[in-house]
């Protein structure tokens, strides 16, 4: 009796130790490469630390944070990020329409989904190259179409049209993921709901707004949340599209922060950390607002 009790106890202890050991690698990784940099960022964002002069490490209070809001490039990059985020709702509406169609067509819906997902598996560098060629004002794809229709030369990647062009490209490459998510969610809506609504005389439009939309609202919310966060942190396609030449009308926040790891901006690490924290807090605040608003349109009950 006593022995059995002890072995059961030690067994439990062993299991507890094993359990912690199994979780340890991921936890250690997150501590080393997430928590540590996070705390470090918080500290050096209050100093004048730069790479070039490693010995300077003076606490300067909120100076970096105040400077960031007077930094025209940084403020402009935030505005640009906000403009870039316009693509997210556009993408969601398109993806919603297309995925509803995919659930309604008789055949080949998986073929369409596979095709629309292709841009997602291709790297941002390749996609950006392809689109820089599509947008090329004289011989690009759209310019060639333009010749047929008699448009003039359009400078898609110039100052005026840069963001509309980048947004179109972003929607194009993001559609596939949203459609996969929405389609999976649409397939989960019980058929009986539609049948009951049809019996009550609800037409297709009413069914869409009263059954389909509420049912996919959690997934839509997820796409919106991750999409906005992602579009605020867009880097590769902007940096590659502009060949790393920053101008106020094309700058994006992460790109600008990245520039501080180069000698172009004197390796001002403390200042760059402050900008990173500001951007991160803005994204978190936007997510919090969306969570607040989500109560009014996201339905979690089945």
């Amino acid at each position: 009796m006593v022995r059995a009790k002890i072995t059961r106890k030690t067994k439990k202890k062993i299991e507890a130790l094993e359990g912690m050991a199994f979780a340890a690698p991921l936890v250690i990784g997150l501590l080393l490469f997430l928590a540590f940099p996070l705390i470090y960022a918080l500290i050096i964002s209050f100093t004048d630390y730069t790479f070039a002069t490693a010995n300077s490490f003076k606490f300067i209070g909120f100076e970096n944070y105040i400077n960031a809001f007077h930094d025209q490039f940084f403020v402009r990059s935030l505005v640009n990020a906000l403009i870039n985020a316009i693509g997210v709702p556009i993408g969601i509406v398109l993806a919603l329409i297309l995925s509803v169609f995919m659930t309604k067509v008789k055949r080949f819906s998986s073929v369409f989904r596979s095709i629309l997902y292709i841009p997602t598996v291709c790297g941002a560098v390749a996609i950006t190259f392809v689109w820089s060629w599509v947008y090329q004002p004289l011989y690009g794809l759209i310019a060639q179409l333009g010749q047929v229709f008699g448009w003039g030369t359009i400078n898609f990647l110039g100052e005026d049209l840069f963001f509309p062009s980048m947004i179109a490209m972003g929607v194009w490459s993001g559609l596939g993921t949203s459609i996969l998510l929405l389609y999976a969610s649409l397939k989960n809506v019980p058929k009986a709901l539609y049948e009951a609504a049809a019996v009550d005389g609800a037409n297709a439009v009413q069914q869409f707004f009263h059954i389909t939309l509420p049912s996919v609202s959690p997934v839509t919310f997820y796409i919106l949340l991750t999409g906005i966060s992602g579009s605020f942190q867009d880097f590769t396609r902007f940096q590659v599209m502009r060949g790393d030449q920053i101008t106020d009308w094309s700058i994006m926040p992460v790109w600008y922060i990245y520039k501080y790891t180069t000698n172009q901006f004197n390796y001002e690490a403390g200042y760059a950390c402050a900008m990173g924290i500001i951007l991160g807090l803005i994204i978190l605040a936007l997510s919090a607002i969306q969570f607040g608003v989500s109560r009014f349109w996201v339905h979690y009950d089945n």
Binding site: L38, A41, F51, S229, V254, T261, C273, G276
Partner: peptide, 12 residues
């Protein structure tokens, strides 16, 4: 946590 926060400190 948005990845951008740890970009610069990780680099340093």
């Amino acid at each position: 946590i948005p990845g951008v926060i740890t970009l610069m400190p990780s680099y340093v």
